[in-house]
Amino acid sequence: MMQINDEILSAMLDGELDAEQIQEVNHAMVADPKLAARFAELAAANASFVQSAKMIDEAPMPDAVTRLLESAEQDSNVADLQAFRQLRKPTHNASNKPALRWAALAASLALAVGLAGGNLLGTGSSSHALSPAVADALNSVSSGEQVEIGSTESMLAGFSFVDTDERFCRQFSVNSQDGSSNQIACRDGEDWEQVAVIRSTEQLSESYQPASANNQALDGVLDTIMVGAPLSLEEEARWLD
């Protein structure tokens, strides 16, 4: 039989005793009210300490710390971009970058057509303009939001990111009675360039599903042009401003 002292009671509080020891302590506390009172005393002291530490949650997180992390994230994007460009330099230059981009797109789209039964429209090696209504929505709607585009279409903003040309880009889907499309567009000055589009005769679900067959096709494009992680809503808001 073990000797039940403050160390054992403290270990009991921390879940550090095995089942047999717990049973032994419980039996001892039933038999000895002083031991039970001591356990309660230690538990209360511990709870006061833990609760007090939680009270700091009431005070707002210091700006200096959040700013530090935000600026680190921006630096990290810049660092990623620079590292990415360094890696690309020996084999790729600016003039063949579109070829690389579209080769990846073609490969991934072939997969998508096979998997999803969709068909590819409107892609090529030159840029494509978006309708003014879609462009307006891309300039104003936050990721996760859905808006009506005219009377028959709706647009759901998926996520935003920065591309290798340091442009603000967005993944989004457009749904209409005739079908749907999953698209990526990047902002060039005031205009939006359609970078990729996959059309399907099926309606897309309301939420973006990265793992779906249609969206897998865009992954190759994203792998090629996307720098860092998708933007947070706060970062996205700064681009939208």
Binding site: N5, L9, S10, A11, A45
Partner: peptide, 17 residues
């Protein structure tokens, strides 16, 4: 670890009381 922790809690309980 056990003894430091136990002494910490005992002292804390004593001071809080």
């Amino acid at each position: 670890v056990m003894s430091r922790l136990s002494r910490a809690r005992c002292k804390l309980a004593e001071l809080l009381a």
